[in-house]
Every structure is written in structure tokens, then in C-alpha cells.
């Protein structure tokens, strides 16, 4: 089944408290060398049929309108090779 991946990340410059919490936990686990963590979201959209340009355009619309908030987040859309 064709799958489209939408990844949403906080924009550069927007504080990411979740990433900061993860970063803060790493030294406590003895895991060093990491200077920053940004946490985002990954959506896997299973499509019923082959991915067409039309459908990709629709996915971008959904990514823009629902899956991300363009004020604070950037998104990428890609088709996952089956």
C-alpha cells in the first residue's frame, strides 16, 4: 500500500520545550556529546491507491491546514518507497 510521510518540526527559533527536556535527560543517562535536540512529529498516511500528483497536492494541503501550524512549524512531504 503506498505510503506518504509527513514530517513536522518546530521552526528554527521557536522554543522546543520537549526537545529541551529530552536533551536534559541525556547526561543523566551518561549519554554525552549531544548539544541540542528538536522534537517533531511524523505522520504516515496510507493511501488506497497509487500516489498521484493530485493526491500529493492534497496531502500538502492537509499538512498545511491540519498536521502543522505554519506559524510555529515546518513540514516536509515525501512518498515512501514500497
Amino acid at each position: 500500500m503506498p505510503r506518504v510521510i509527513v514530517e513536522v518540526m518546530p521552526k528554527p527559533g521557536i522554543l522546543d520545550p520537549q526537545g529541551k527536556a529530552v536533551l536534559g535527560a541525556m547526561p543523566r543517562l551518561g549519554f554525552g556529546g549531544v548539544v541540542d535536540v528538536r522534537q517533531g512529529k511524523r505522520f504516515e498516511l496510507e493511501l488506497a491507491e497509487e500516489v498521484t500528483e493530485d493526491q500529493l497536492a492534497q496531502v500538502r494541503q492537509v499538512a498545511e491546514a491540519l498536521l502543522s501550524n505554519p506559524v510555529i512549524e515546518d513540514y516536509t512531504v515525501r512518498v515512501e518507497a514500497s
Partner: peptide, 10 residues
């Protein structure tokens, strides 16, 4: 305009 995100002190 704008958005509301998690409190900076979490």
C-alpha cells in the same frame, strides 16, 4: 495571529 506553545519551564 500567532500561536500558543508549551510553557518555557515545561
Amino acid at each position: 495571529p500567532g500561536a500558543l506553545i508549551r510553557n518555557h519551564h515545561r
